[in-house]
Design a protein around this nucleic acid. Structure first.
Length: 336
DNA sequence: CACTCACTAAACATCC
DNA sequence: TGGATGTTTAGTGAGT
């Protein structure tokens, strides 16, 4: 494990900001900073006819954006169609394949956290199966606490969350923690305090929601968190095909996204395949600024983005991961 | 073997 | 006053 995630507030970390409570707002949250900080071509088939790019200007290099800016752009959806693929900036050296049986893994499950008597068994440690929060609710997520916090905050429209809502988010998305001893909450707080990726935001007293502060991602360290996520040994339902699907119909019928080393999608996204529950996928898509192209047949939520039918305000996805399981995602369409 | 990282536990202080 | 939150320290285990 590389020094990607400084446990103590070290200067090498990275972070963005913001968080929210409802996944229904997942795509409402967009930061202008995020839109600007990457200059990545949007594949033509993925371009969304939703709105013009807000910024024709050159984007600043990482770390040069103005932190105050993003929070004022919380309701726009530019990130959706601007699709600044963060992973592009990682470059080929970081490309790697992901395997559904990627074995071990996890950032969390493979560490010294499994040997505590009071901790539930962590099947993921066995490394035989890919992690699926829905199918294996007792599996410890293959994400470090830093990544979990990152995803929680990133999932919030405001990109800010109190610690309590971070707990809630983790519980909602990783039921493993529902049965875990409460020590994990201590770990979350410990991580928030110690990890420089996370910054405490002073709350407006008039809008106080109770005890504690809001936490956000330090934009300076966001890349580190993304790197850490990328280094998660595998992602839910990841599949790597040795050869490309021969036709669009071929991958339309797949239960998993088509991905093979060398494909444009693979290269664009640093070899990280993101699929799992709809919720998880959207979160990761959100984090990586990937264009969400979903077919969810027989679902009123089907966002046919690629057909230009998606209207920003109407693009809502089930808030409940339980009600929208991975099996609901029949296929993903990528521009290959 | 040294170092780093991630995690856990615990103590303590502060705030509501 | 109790619980939640935040900080800090210590220790462990695994990976590099």
């Amino acid at each position: 494990m590389g020094p990607v995630m400084p446990p103590s507030k070290k200067p090498e970390a990275s972070g963005i900001s913001v968080a929210s409570a409802s996944l229904s707002h997942l795509y409402q949250a967009s930061s202008l900073q995020e839109a600007e900080e990457l200059d990545l071509a949007f594949p033509a088939p993925l371009a969304l006819p939703l709105a013009p790019l807000t910024d024709g200007a050159a984007k600043p290099e990482k770390g040069t954006s103005t932190p105050g800016m993003e929070d004022e752009e919380l309701t726009n959806l530019n990130w959706l169609h601007e699709s600044k693929n963060l992973l592009n900036s990682f470059g080929d050296p970081v490309l790697r394949s992901v395997s559904p049986v990627g074995g071990e893994g996890g950032v969390v499950g493979n560490r010294g956290d499994r040997d505590h008597d009071n901790m539930p068994p962590s099947p993921i440690a066995g490394g035989d199966l890919p992690y699926d929060a829905d199918r294996n609710p007792n599996c410890k997520p293959p994400y470090s606490f830093s990544c979990l916090i990152f995803m929680a905050i990133e999932d919030a429209p405001s990109k800010r969350l109190p610690v309590k809502e971070i707990y809630t988010w983790i519980l909602e998305h990783f039921s493993y923690f529902a049965n875990a001893p409460t020590g994990w909450k201590n770990s979350v707080r410990h991580n928030l305090s110690l990890n420089k990726c996370f910054k405490k935001v002073d709350k407006d007293r008039s809008q106080s929601i109770g005890k504690g502060s809001l936490w956000c991602i330090d934009p300076e360290y966001r890349q580190n968190l993304i790197q850490a996520l990328k280094k998660t040994p595998y992602h839910p339902h990841a599949q790597v095909f040795s050869t490309p699907p021969t036709s669009p119909q071929a991958y339309q019928s797949m239960s998993s996204p088509p991905l093979w080393p060398g494909s444009p999608f693979f290269r664009r996204n640093g070899g990280v395949l993101l699929q799992g529950t709809v919720t998880q996928t959207l979160i990761l898509y959100r984090i990586f600024s990937l264009p969400p192209l979903f077919h969810v047949p027989s679902s009123p939520l089907t966002p046919l983005v690629h057909q230009g039918e998606l209207k920003p305000p109407s693009f809502h996805v089930s808030h409940s991961p339980q009600s929208c399981r991975s099996g609901d995602v029949d296929s993903f369409a990528y521009a290959l």
